[in-house]
Design a protein around this nucleic acid. Structure first.
Lengths: 345, 345
DNA sequence: AGCGTCAACTCAAACGTTTGCGTAAAAATT
DNA sequence: AATTTTTACGCAAACGTTTGAGTTGACGCT
């Protein structure tokens, strides 16, 4: 069904011009006289002519839409990122098509396939925690699909990447816990394979090492599904609470893990921060009104999305193949609240 | 750029068949012999052939994508709704294209225009709080665009609608507050024009009237921007706190208003529920761990999205014009937590 | 007058499919 | 054996646009 009944053909017929003249007039070609251009444009304007995007896409070979793959849209961090993407894409006349991997490798592959099938002009992707192999992406890139990674990037593929200072954020959070008098700091994080996990882990380790504190393997828990699977997380929390000496603080490495951990601690009647302090990466707007208010490492989510999209569009619009890639690292911000209140007083 | 280099033409050439034979074989036409079909299909399979969606769209006149307009994706309720939509659409081979109105009428009109321009096959929309006039939608519907409303619907346009029992939810919440001993119950809601506002207001009023409690106009505050504009909301809260007698409870009518009100009360050092109880419509997963835990009216957001999409696709796929429209009303659920703890003990 | 130049336009092919119609050969019917 | 019917395929137009290659007529130059 077509809701813009009027086509370039209609205009041509009406104005006694050829289809190509109308097309060129509309595209402001030098081949067409000012008079005719004006005539055509005014007619088009008046009749609310819109070029059929599908015909244009077919002809031009691009679809003016970009694909997005995130783990879950129902997540404050990602919805804010997408917000930024939608904003930038929209302002440049592009649509975004969003898909969710739910942290599953299979779904990710399937989604990417679906997007390609939909003829996207570029891909913005934060790879699923489950994904270890990125061959499916590499192949696409080699075939010429512009890809920009954000958040969870792959070291194996060279392209633009937008991440935050994960190492710094985790380091800062851990140091803050140490400064507040916590000694036995545990770390709950996502899949080992993820770039984000590695960097945050490194920040955590660095902070401990710097203070001469032993890094205990049993204090580090990996959740393959990034907190989506509550059972998995609960097991991690239980194990931490059962270890000797029991950790007096936990650093959680992602939005979902942070909020879910908080929920679990509540259910178990573990007091925060008296029994165990909590600091986590999170973008929830509710950090202030949580019980207790949550010390969080906040990421500039909107800006991540905006920047990643800007870079993707720059590749898409580039005349010559892009070979120099940029690695943008945005700063995180530590918001200190009650969940990590100082032990000293 | 095309990443699936292989076209129906390539297959035809390779197999010494005509383009139409290949096309028909692929579509399993009765005109083609089993042998040839098998040959073609296997070749297509082997070379990973994908029909070019743009060519198909152009030919068939539909794009296999549906447009979504919500106020903001960065909102637990809407992101859950979209989750449901994406899920249903995807399973039927459709994409969703998401746009945000940010509660602005102008943006809504612009977005809808953009979507139409993109040749969507149908529209899922929750109208912006600012929107009073729905002519732009009516026109599209008359031109044959299938539309399904969800959440914020228009009474002026006849089509499928999916909402929740707003009246019941507000009634139940208000009654709960009354049962807990609160007498002066205020109500902060969105724009007067919104269907949701009207229904929730009615539930609130009904509950009060039923108990013989006077409905005070000064206890009812409207926020035109649905809580997106914090100043507007703060003014409403301030006015409520200053009114005599001061309300001892507030019923908030949307996710954003609820969480923002909670934040504001915190900032003002108003204790919940001791100074003022709070019950709100909200889909946050953090209700349990808020300070205090939040009594909330929860909406089946995923199901709203899923159902709305199912209905839209049924219109799209219907052979004959649909004239009988359904009005689906899903139940809400009241989760009682501490923010409305009983006054009696 | 004969020539080239240029402006302003038209033609027609192309993008990758789908589909109604035409047709040759094979099969079935007389 | 002559015919109709069926089967299996090819042809070509169409969807709406873009674009390089003509075409036409007006104009200026020698």
């Amino acid at each position: 069904m077509n809701f813009d009944a009027i086509t370039i053909r209609d205009i041509a017929r009406e104005l006694h011009l050829s289809v190509s003249t109308v097309s060129k007039a509309l595209r402001d070609s030098y081949e067409i006289s000012e008079k005719t251009k004006k005539l055509v444009m005014e007619f088009a304007q008046k009749h609310n002519y819109r070029p059929n995007p599908m015909a244009q896409s077919l002809k031009k070979g691009h679809s003016k839409s970009i694909g997005i793959v995130v783990s879950s849209i129902d997540n404050q961090f990602f919805s804010q990122v997408i917000n930024g993407m939608e904003s930038e894409a929209y302002s440049q006349g592009y649509n975004v098509i969003i898909t969710q991997s739910h942290e599953s490798y299979d779904l990710e592959v399937q989604n990417v396939g679906h997007l390609i099938h939909r003829a996207i002009d570029g891909l913005l992707i934060s790879i699923a925690t489950e994904t270890a192999d990125v061959e499916h992406l590499r192949r696409l890139q080699q075939q010429g699909l512009p890809i920009v990674f954000f958040d969870r990037v792959s070291t194996e593929i060279e392209t633009h990447k937008v991440i935050v200072d994960n190492l710094g954020g985790a380091y800062q959070a851990t140091t803050h816990l140490l400064d507040s008098g916590y000694k036995n700091i545990a770390h709950i994080t996502s899949s080992v394979t993820s770039s984000v996990t590695k960097q945050r882990l490194e920040g955590y380790v660095n902070a401990l090492v710097e203070r001469g504190i032993e890094v205990k393997e049993r204090y580090i828990k990996y959740c393959l599904h990034g907190g989506l699977n509550l059972d998995e997380l609960e097991q991690a929390v239980d194990e931490l609470l059962a270890s000797e000496p029991r950790p007096d603080a936990i650093l959680t490495a992602s939005d979902r893990i942070t909020t879910s951990t908080m929920t679990l601690l509540h259910r178990k009647n573990i007091r925060i921060p008296q029994d165990v302090a909590l600091v986590g990466f999170s973008n929830t707007v509710l950090a202030d009104v949580l019980n207790p208010s949550l010390t969080s490492v906040h990421q500039p989510a909107f800006e991540i999305g905006r920047k990643a999209t800007e870079m993707l569009l720059s590749i898409i619009n580039s005349k010559r193949p892009v070979t120099e890639f940029e690695n943008v690292i945005l700063p995180t911000e530590l918001f200190i609240r009650s969940s990590s209140a100082s032990k000293h007083k």
